[in-house]
Design a protein around this nucleic acid. Structure first.
Lengths: 123, 123
DNA sequence: TTGATATATGCACATATACGCATATGCTTG
DNA sequence: CAAGCATATGCGTATATGTGCATATATCAA
């Protein structure tokens, strides 16, 4: 695991042209992007901005089925984006750290840039 | 198109709990993440850090087949991450704007956070 | 132990997409 | 026009994954 950390040291600055990401690091990054590439998972993350919530609450807010929401929460937790805490019958999920929002904000900013260019292209 | 821009105004600050992203915005963000969720596409972006390159050069650097590289470049261009410029027989691709790297850096940072937690959990 | 509630999972199905192969298109030169 | 090079695309296939339905597991209460 610490090997990963050190291998990601040079990954963080992708613009450093001298150092290319390894295949493993590349797949790790792709995997993280993939986790965030589902609208329902983004919706769940959004609901969790308020703080930790149990599955039922997230089912109600998201409008998804219990099974599907549970599976997406599993995925997010397994990939390290959510923390899981059991309390009696209920399981509470919460956003693991702030970097989740950084990723989302970066993408939203990227989309804004794309749209700026599009509107320029349209005149 | 300008409608999208205004609808994304509140999207940018995902942490503003009072304003939830619309379904359309959510799908737009998910789509952007999906584009970046392929190792080969990340590799191509990485190659393009140096500046614009034609398809053949990218085929050589990436190690992929011509057909596959071409398709990935199409995807990246269609989604607004790359610019396309034709010059005689060759087609040159280049990174559309810096926000692409911001997205990648944000994700790399997120991974680093995850790994930090993992190493703590392991003792 | 039995029952009730909250969450997770096995299974089947539909859809999306990455990939290789072959071929088509576009552009330039002779 | 024909030939050749660079790039794009149609097609078939394999694989991944999102989803719903039913059911399993886990925890608590009586």
């Amino acid at each position: 695991m610490l090997d990963y950390m050190s291998s990601l040291g040079h990954v963080y600055s992708m613009k450093d042209a001298n150092e290319r990401m390894s295949d493993e690091a590349l797949e790790l990054v792709a995997r993280r992007f993939a986790v965030l590439s589902e609208p329902m998972r983004l919706r769940l993350l959004q609901s969790l901005i308020d703080g930790e919530k149990n599955v039922n609450a997230l089912v109600a807010e998201s409008g998804g089925t219990q099974a599907n929401v549970s599976r997406h929460l599993q995925t997010l937790a397994r990939e390290g984006l959510l923390s899981r805490r059991r309390e009696g019958l209920q399981v509470f999920y919460s956003v693991a750290d702030e970097s989740v929002f950084n990723m989302c904000c970066a993408v939203c900013g990227g989309i804004r840039e794309s749209l700026k260019k599009d509107s320029k292209a349209l005149g």
